[in-house]
Write a protein that binds this DNA or RNA. Structure first.
Lengths: 208, 208
DNA sequence: CAAAAACCTGACCGATCGTGCAGGAAAAAT
DNA sequence: ATTTTTCCTGCACGATCGGTCAGGTTTTTG
């Protein structure tokens, strides 16, 4: 009986934290760090403001948690780009995964965009360490693909930038895209069509 | 003597307004609509807060002026995409112009990104009228290019989205790009290289 | 069942927000 | 030179901000 009640309390805590993080992602995406208020996040999460502060003692801690979360998801999504992979398959799979995340986690993408636009005041250390080393590794892989004659010689860095830009555009600018789609979000078929179009545009002419 | 002094006053007014708009573009880009404060914009413009309010009676009016400005610049940059143009030349020129604007007006691009991320609360009417009709016209042009066999059959809308995403990425994410460029902005040669790489990536395989 | 620990929240604080307004300073008109 | 108009700014306001804290409630412990 002891562990059960203890588990119950833990579960409630985990649930509250999850609700707060989900709400924070939406509110931070919509208003940016300075524009978002703790009270609005609390309202979105259906909790009193004091309770949000109880779990995350400062606004910055809550924000940092949200930003680091989407960063890690993106990083994990790209680990498949390795030297002995087939370029078309690896890049295609990377684009697919990032497009899926653009659809399922658009608010996380928007928070990241806001953070970078502001000059990365919170995650600058991440950019200079994890992102920088990870990027160098992928650039090296693409260079080896070129040397092996697997793909046409293009600038690996700009290929990565173009993939990031395009996939995240479908999250960050989803409102603009909806407006140009008669006011409604892309449906399943349209998302599939979009993924194919993006892959064709970016990869045709690159991979033989 | 009368018209000269009158001109002097007018010039001062024009200069103040220009300083305010330049400052507002930077501050709105960095903090978003809700996060930016009039006092910070005034500080950036080197004027008392009251003076900013004197020229722009409300924060929303100032913001709307900034957003509409970058919107119109972008729209003008793309008027060259017409049916009887050479696709490679027209699209290449469009990309070049948008890349130039990404370099010279990055803060305007960031304000637009913030506005769209927030769901376009201010310029929604623009999206539904000017942007929508303009987009349809360009889509029709690209369709005719395809019908004439000038370019490969691709989704015109997604081609446009990809161009927007990529060109604006170099403005909106310039801090991230700088960080991956040893901490410094792209120099003249790197910008030229970037423009060529983007055009090659997006247009190779599209235009014959 | 009592003691202890963990969880939760209403009330409050100083700071800053957007903006209205009175009135002085400068320029233009007469 | 004096009036009229335009330009400019310090001050004050209610609202909201992030964050503190005392104290109540619930859960766990012994």
């Amino acid at each position: 009986m002891r562990p059960q009640q203890y588990t119950k309390q833990k579960k409630n805590r985990a649930q509250n934290i999850e609700n707060i993080l989900t709400a924070a992602e939406i509110i931070f995406a919509q208003f940016g760090y300075n524009g978002a208020s703790i009270s609005r996040i609390a309202e979105e999460a259906g909790l009193p403001k004091s309770n949000v502060v109880y779990y995350f003692s400062t606004k910055e801690l809550l924000y940092r948690t949200v930003v680091e979360d989407i960063f890690n998801v993106w990083r994990a999504a790209a680990d498949e780009i390795v030297e002995d992979a087939d370029p078309r398959e690896a890049l295609g799979s990377y684009i697919d995964t990032k497009m899926e995340l653009a659809r399922t986690r658009p608010y996380g993408s928007m928070v990241w965009a806001n953070e970078i636009i502001q000059g990365a005041p919170i995650v600058q250390d991440y950019l200079e360490t994890e992102l920088r080393s990870w990027t160098e590794e992928r650039v090296n892989v693409i260079h080896k693909w070129i040397a092996a004659g697997k793909i046409r010689p293009i600038s690996p860095k700009h290929l990565l930038f173009t993939i990031w830009a395009t996939t995240q555009h479908y999250a960050d600018f989803k409102h603009q895209i909806s407006t140009l789609n008669e006011g409604s979000d892309l449906n399943d078929a349209q998302w599939e069509e979009t993924k194919q179009a993006v892959k064709e545009l970016l990869l045709f002419g690159i991979c033989h």
